[in-house]
Design a protein around this nucleic acid. Sequence first.
DNA 1: AACCCATGCAACCGCACACTA
DNA 2: ATAGTGTGCGGTTGCATGGGT
Length: 225
Amino acid sequence: MDKKSGNSQDAEVRKGPWTMEEDLILINYIANHGEGVWNSLARSAGLKRTGKSCRLRWLNYLRPDVRRGNITPEEQLLIMELHAKWGNRWSKIAKHLPGRTDNEIKNYWRTRIQKHIKQAETFSAGAQCSDNNDQISGSADHHHHPVETYSSSLSYPENDHASTSQMFGSTDHHLLLHHQAVESYSPVLSYPGNLETFPATFPTESTDNIWSMEDLWSMHLVNGD
DNA sequence: AACCCATGCAACCGCACACTA
DNA sequence: ATAGTGTGCGGTTGCATGGGT
């Protein structure tokens, strides 16, 4: 359309990591006005962000009920089961994991589980020799449907922790054990933004850059109107 | 101590769908 | 019936960090 004339506005659109100030503005605004209609919300709140960006930030990070980190073995198993059932329907999977976001599950899958599956594939490919090369390489191919992948080459069992860790290989027990060790989840918000951009009044001494949602919400109450 | 590499995660992008005027 | 707008989703990218050499 009229991209040139829109440049002056586009230049105002902020991208990249959110600052704490922006977070507080967004939290404040949603606390007072509710969420939804993100484009106008962004404008009304005075955020130089797109509605999309605001929505993503809220849903994936700022929502009071969002849980982050420490995926439990139960959750891990559930993710695997649901992914085997539905494939990369991350939002659908996320609905069955309260407090988890599609983005987190997606990242978790890509960084953790997919790695182990590839290792398992390599192992089974080596064990089964070249007979099943089509299947193996096919399942490594992202264009193939994951349901096919599991049913044909991996077929991890349902509701079976031991078998799950078997699938990950004996040397990968640490993954499950680690999660068991840190299972005592406490909902904290680790603020990833640039601390230098924080207002000087925010507490930074004892907990460094670990912020609980309570902290944020109480700050919102302090700053809110 | 400095550099390089691998990993994890937050955020952006493009597309498709739903809704409304 | 259609065009415009907003929303949701999945894929991808870029950066920060930690570990290894």
